[in-house]
Design a protein around this nucleic acid. Structure first.
Length: 377
DNA sequence: GATCCACGGGAATACACGGATG
DNA sequence: CATCCGTGTATTCCCGTGGATC
């Protein structure tokens, strides 16, 4: 992306070793191919999923755990690997020779942040199962589910649905309803479990685990690496949340880069931690918002303090830069607040009549957000 | 012509305050 | 003194619309 190019340009302009050598390693919205320190979780997931390799479809289940505990990291990596395993061998033969020994199902990863509706879920699953593209319009949910049913009648599928139960996306019931098709088994990944379903629970990273993860990723990401003390301080601060820990490092690196520094000092690291509100929303959730809402958010973080003093003032100011009416911007802002992406802080101003306004505060690191959300529209 | 979904827009409702009312 | 009322904002809610695509 052009961000990467811009960064490289900065790197060259400063003397000595580049400050940031691998931006993805520090990104709180990217996962490594090999997750760090979640071996036991991988084993438990395999206990559940591996029987599928012998053609025995697992029961529907939930993978639950707190934010930043590595759920997505493990599931994306594991599903990718299982699918590689399956498609790499038997399936080519399978299509030509019909009935034979039960064959391994396909493994599919779907992100509910993108597949926001029942239709979206069915569409996403079908799309990754079929070679040719699946229409996203002009065809009803029922039709698509019929097609899915047809498809999995012969080739079963295990579907991992990530980020279930987030505002604006499908909840557990919606997933169950959408993927209630014989031949499909699903694994819903989210914060909450459910008594009626098999459940795999993840604990937050413990101190040592998070320290390992940070050590690995910071050494990959930052040219000079970091001191053990720095890593430990962020790990303690993050209290088991890998997302927040990486966001703090990313913010610190970004600050150091902007200042033209060649290394990340303790003071910069403190600022990086201060850049990340806790509790906050995962950047990944913010960045996958529908385009207009994202544009409104970009507008919001670009405003000066004065223009954030009330929702209506902010709406007018944002509507200036975005091709939306002030009233629509206003409604978006209220909805974003309702979903916890921004917070309305009751204003202190009591002059005059009428209900006092609320100040708007983002519940995510605006510094990291800017680095990823840029200004494309 | 059907279908999906993000948008648009505004009506309805809630809230805060000061002043009037009993 | 306790309540009600009017006014001005803030907040929520609801439903139609339009573009895009089959």
């Amino acid at each position: 992306m052009d961000l990467a190019a811009r960064i490289r340009r900065r790197q060259r302009s400063s003397s000595g070793a580049p400050l940031v050598v691998n931006e993805d390693a520090l990104s709180p919205v990217a996962h490594l191919d090999e997750p760090v320190g979640r071996g036991p979780l991988v084993e438990r997931l395999l206990d559940h999923l591996a029987p599928a390799l012998d053609g025995r479809l697992p029961e529907n289940a939930v993978l639950s755990g707190p934010p930043g505990s590595g759920k997505s990291a493990v599931v994306t990596a594991l599903v990718a690997e299982l699918d590689r395993l399956v498609t790499g061998s038997a399936s080519a033969i399978y299509t030509t020779t019909r009935a034979q020994a039960p064959s391994a199902p396909a493994f599919v990863y779907v992100d509910a942040r993108h597949a926001r509706s029942e239709f979206g879920l069915v569409h996403a699953v079908l799309d990754s199962l079929l070679a040719d593209s699946v229409p996203a319009d002009g065809v009803g949910t029922a039709t698509l589910r019929d097609r899915l049913r047809e498809r999995v009648a012969t080739d079963q599928a295990v579907v991992a649905v990530d980020h279930v139960g987030e505002p604006g996306g499908p909840d557990l019931d919606a997933v169950a309803a959408a993927l209630d098709v014989p031949g499909v088994a699903w694994l819903a990944v989210g914060r909450e479990g459910d008594e009626t379903l098999a459940e795999i629970e993840v604990q937050p990273y413990d101190r040592a685990g998070l320290l390992d993860l940070l050590t690995e990723r910071v050494s990959q990401g930052v040219g000079d690496g970091a001191t053990h003390d720095q890593l430990a301080r962020v790990a303690d601060w993050a209290d088991g949340d890998a997302h927040d820990a990486l966001a703090a490092w990313f913010a610190a690196a970004d600050r150091a880069r902007a200042a033209g520094a060649s290394r990340i000092t303790d003071a910069t690291l403190d600022q990086g931690m201060a850049d990340v509100p806790r509790p906050g929303v995962p950047l990944g959730r913010v960045l996958t918002l529908p385009p207009r809402r994202l544009a409104v958010l970009r507008g919001l973080v670009a405003l000066d303090e004065a223009n954030r003093e009330s929702v209506s003032i902010a709406s007018v100011a944002i509507a200036d830069r975005v091709a939306l009416s002030a009233s629509t911007v206003e409604r978006f802002l209220y909805e974003l607040a309702e979903d916890g992406i921004i917070e309305r802080v009751p204003g202190t101003r009591t002059e005059g009549a009428g209900r006092p306004p609320s100040r708007l505060t983002p519940r995510f690191s605006t510094r990291v957000f800017r680095a990823f959300a840029g200004q494309e529209d």
